[in-house]
Design a protein around this nucleic acid. Sequence first.
DNA 1: CCCCTCTCTCGTACGGTGTACTGGAACTAG
DNA 2: CTAGTTCCAGTACACCGTACGAGAGAGGGG
Lengths: 258, 258
Amino acid sequence: MSSTSSQPPADGVPRPPDVVRRLALLWDPPQPSGRGRRARLTLDDVVGAGTTIADTEGLEALSMRKVAARLGVGAMSLYTYVPGRTELLDLMIDRAFAELPLPPATATWRDGLAAYARAHWELFQRHPWILQTNMWRLPLTPAVLDAQECGLRTLVDTGLPERQVVEILGLVDAFVRGLARSTVAESTEKDASGQSNDEYWTSMSSFWVDHFDPQRYPTMLRIWDAGGFDAEATPFDASLDRLLDSVEMAIDRARGAR
Amino acid sequence: MSSTSSQPPADGVPRPPDVVRRLALLWDPPQPSGRGRRARLTLDDVVGAGTTIADTEGLEALSMRKVAARLGVGAMSLYTYVPGRTELLDLMIDRAFAELPLPPATATWRDGLAAYARAHWELFQRHPWILQTNMWRLPLTPAVLDAQECGLRTLVDTGLPERQVVEILGLVDAFVRGLARSTVAESTEKDASGQSNDEYWTSMSSFWVDHFDPQRYPTMLRIWDAGGFDAEATPFDASLDRLLDSVEMAIDRARGAR
DNA sequence: CCCCTCTCTCGTACGGTGTACTGGAACTAG
DNA sequence: CTAGTTCCAGTACACCGTACGAGAGAGGGG
């Protein structure tokens, strides 16, 4: 657990994590319970509102007060649905991962793994805030485990030893997250730096003339001149194909050694 | 730029980024300037104190007030050395990356790249908060560019097209960060969940009995039984070697096609 | 010598955050 | 109708980053 926790410094008095309650909320639907006053909202409303804010304004704009305002409700009312911000984030992540179109078990390992990677890639475009969650690991939620299960399933019958299956899936995950990160960066940086596009560009290029020393960074200069850095815009699929080639090599080797 | 910015929600009035000042601070040493009252501290003191706090208490505990307290100084005094928290973080990252023992240009590409990866790996063990900075990209600081230059240099003369050099180094970076993340997670999670080790363990295992459905996750179960997940503790070097094998394959192919 | 000017120092204050507490409102079961 | 149970929300607290401005210390010019 912990995963996304320690995202806020645990303000005020830290409130013990209470891992059990947190997991129960994720894995068992909140029973309506009949008795007492009717709820104006559902848990899904709250999670949805949070996701909308994070999608449009970024994770840093996600505050309990803002979520409550969007739902036309007092800030403290949210705490009837959700124990705290950390758990709200876990629920948002679960909801997002539930959107993943997971490939069927019938696909070949290569098609399946490619679909797995592409699905994550597109998810991170749609919900870039997931990459901001600073999680050490993803939270242990149903949809997240579904995705992991699916990814592992694509490789488990290829003859690879189990450890390598885990290792390779980790590599694929890191690859997708890394590439998504830099792609999102490119689109975020410009408007995040405030003001106009021009102002950003001029201050950016002032870096190259004022501080960048070509003698100190000859390789970078050479690669830049050869257009190597424009390739950040290289299609995702080409890089993925090369990665899958190396996976195929590992599989072939494992089969040969058997 | 932007990199680590938007780490705090841009509290209060956002203060325009002023990219120019930020870069100047990073690339040009702060001239002592003679006139006026003598400074009690140096910029390095401030950055060092911040690093110490982040190392020992985590990035979430890094606040201006805490850094100031450690230096025996008022909170606002820090702002004579540093424009704000964002810039302090950039400086801390630069200082950390300056610790990297970069391999000499004389090494073979494989030795150099392995040394590059291992140096980063060890850096992230020493300063795990770097993995928490949520940066879209690393800041454009001298030491960070030194490291990138070094990484690119190991591959630039191997016959790979420039784009693939950039792409492969990105993959290596993502790999190291990903593996470091999950390794750090393992050591952090336990004490981060507060209380005793026992309490953590019992609440953790309560997950497996209360919520984990083996029918839903057969592949995970199978890999678990085969010990595939213990392999997270697999030596870093073994995984790295396999990654480098795939790089070698890419190089051979590029040479063959030439 | 004084004074002026420049710099660093830092108390106060503002607007933001997560959330504990508490009293009340609204509903249902008996 | 009453008791029990739930949801609602205002207030309050500790903490955050940092704008502002008054004071403290040091050098240079007269």
